[in-house]
């Protein structure tokens, strides 16, 4: 025992009309369910609380608020302080297939009004959800843009980030990666050490994933222009491979790829993370990269505490 370890508990509220997809996304990100499984979900009764340990000391206290009228009324009246107090993050989910946009915005306004009273420093994210229902990419872009404009006007105090999402592709992982990025304590320190590690081990790209969700925590690349989106399909791919491993009564642990042009490792790193390392320098033997990962492990374990 080395003294006090300060554990941070952060309240994250997911709000939106019934059927918007709140519970579906929680299942997809925080458990080993597939998009198909969500079809069996029933409406959430009242509020479903869950505690998720994320990156060592960060504990997310997730409030998944059932969106049927009777519950919503309750949240906005008797329960308002309980629901909107102490909120670190509010995630508002818009079903883009909604038939009544005006009443949707009204509900959103009501929520933000309460948030302004009880948690004025909360961070707000708006997810325009079920984007898979729009087939054309340009149309998708336009839809998110129109929500973005409308929401900016309505919520000057909170300046929400707006993402288009769908449980059927990587967009959900992108949005949630951005959300948790802001929540992890010491993020700048972790990022700096990760990029040091990349330089010291002559690697081309290094990515840190949260261990359970496989969300990207942070990354560093020799080429500074590499976008975060590059890694999103990995979160999705590894999670679906984890599901496949269940069929052989096992659990995914690590993967290693090597060929004439590059080597790549994805392996457990600290207690709460996975690491991905890509090396393209032919002088660097994969075994050396592997040894470097092992050597860095204790250092990062201390950091991410």
């Amino acid at each position: 025992m080395n003294g006090l370890s300060i554990s941070t508990k952060k309240k994250l509220v997911i709000m939106g009309r019934s059927g918007a997809g709140k519970t579906s996304m929680r299942w997809l990100i925080f458990s080993n369910y597939t998009a198909n499984d969500t079809r069996r979900l029933g409406a959430t009764i009242d509020v479903e609380h869950s505690m998720v340990n994320f990156m060592g000391d960060l504990n997310l206290n997730i409030w998944d608020c059932g969106g049927q009228h009777k519950y919503l009324d309750n949240y906005l009246n008797e329960q308002r302080e309980n629901i909107f107090g102490n909120v670190e993050v509010l995630i508002y989910v818009f079903d883009l297939e909604t038939t009544n946009k005006e009443s949707e915005y009204q509900l959103y306004d009501d929520c933000l009004r309460n948030l302004a009273v009880f948690s004025p420093t909360a961070k707000v994210y708006c997810l325009v959800h079920k984007m898979d229902k729009i087939p054309e990419p340009e149309q998708k872009e336009l839809t998110v843009e129109s929500y973005r404009r409308a929401l900016a006007k309505r919520s000057e105090m909170f300046q929400p980030d707006v993402f288009g999402t769908s449980i059927w592709d990587h967009t959900l992982y992108r949005a949630w990666s951005r959300i948790v990025y802001k929540l992890v304590p010491n993020m700048e320190i972790i990022e700096r050490h990760l990029s040091n590690f990349r330089r010291l081990s002559d690697a081309t790209e290094v990515v840190l994933f949260e261990r359970e969700t496989f969300l990207v925590v942070c990354y560093t690349a020799a080429d500074a222009d590499v976008p975060l989106d590059k890694y999103m399909h990995i979160s999705q791919g590894i999670k679906s491979y984890r599901n496949a491993c269940v069929h052989v009564q096992s659990r995914f642990q690590s993967v290693e790829v090597s060929n004439k042009f590059y080597s790549m490792f994805i392996e457990p790193f600290t207690k709460s993370t996975y690491i991905l390392v890509i090396t393209t320098d032919p002088e660097v033997e994969p075994a050396v990269t592997k040894a470097n990962i092992t050597a860095a492990r204790p250092h990062f374990s201390d950091l991410a505490r």
Binding site: H233, Q253, F261, Y262, L276, T280
Partner: peptide, 28 residues
């Protein structure tokens, strides 16, 4: 899925034979 990440590191005019070895480790 994972090799997709490294497509840019393959030479453009390659015959695709790159002596690739991949190992997946599972628990148990």
């Amino acid at each position: 899925d994972v090799s997709q990440l490294c497509i840019e590191y393959l030479p453009p005019s390659d015959d695709g034979m790159m002596s690739q070895k991949v190992t997946f480790d599972l628990e148990g």
